[in-house]
Amino acid sequence: MSSVEVLQSAIVIDGIAKTFRRGNTETRALERIDLTVHDGEFVAIVGPSGCGKSTLMRLIAGLTSATAGSIKLHGTRVVHPQTALGIVFQSPVLLEWRNVLANVLLQLELRGRDPAPHRERALALLATVGLADFADRYPRELSGGMRQRAAIVRALIHDPPLLLMDEPFGALDALTREQMRVDLEALWLETKKTVVFITHSIDEAVLLADRVVVMSARPGRIERILEIGLARPRGLDARKSSRFVEATDLITSIFLARGILHGTRH
């Protein structure tokens, strides 16, 4: 897809490093990350736990500052929290005193927009993630997976051009997860948002992304960037394709070589 269109860069990450300091202990979370995400591109990031994926997402959103390097969103340097995006964290973080619908509409209320005209759309989005009957329920009445789905709808309701998702399907069961993946692809094909999708699942990364960024363990670095090039929509069948097997095998072998995965001992 890079051949014909002239792609604008949605995100340009240039030599980003992040070191956490607490007293005398330093944690080098990220070391020299360079990455460009094009407008409308779907990029997945896979890497072992603690390699700095969440930190990278927070840096892109301007929620934390880098130790070195710079990030630009559509040509503007990120210094403050960014608002032209939807964000899903690892945990759903809903407000327990608001029902599901009100939690979704919180996005608009905090932005100072009247939530009333968005009710219909919110309900429709909730229906697509299987929460049609739960709009008036409170978070404590929902399962972990349902809460996370509500949080995903909250990140979409204001129709942002950029979606940052940190292991959004982590709390879901395998079946719902597969369905959410297919639905997310459909939504993305429809809206062509730029998506940065963090996951632990190699399969999920390959099945969803245009490019998969493979990260290595602490301090986090980019190990490899893979063009996936599977035809869309990938739906449920893509798992059978040889390209899927090839890509997942390659990522697995990278993790094996780096000692992040261990094969069976002989």
Partner: peptide, 27 residues
């Protein structure tokens, strides 16, 4: 207050007052 919910609120550009009234105080 959960730091993630405050981070979410910051990505909406809400004022300090609004974050206080809608999130910090009720919780």
């Amino acid at each position: 207050v959960d730091p993630d919910i405050m981070d979410f609120a910051r990505t909406t550009g809400a004022s300090q007052w609004k974050m206080f009234a809608m999130i910090r105080l009720p919780q």
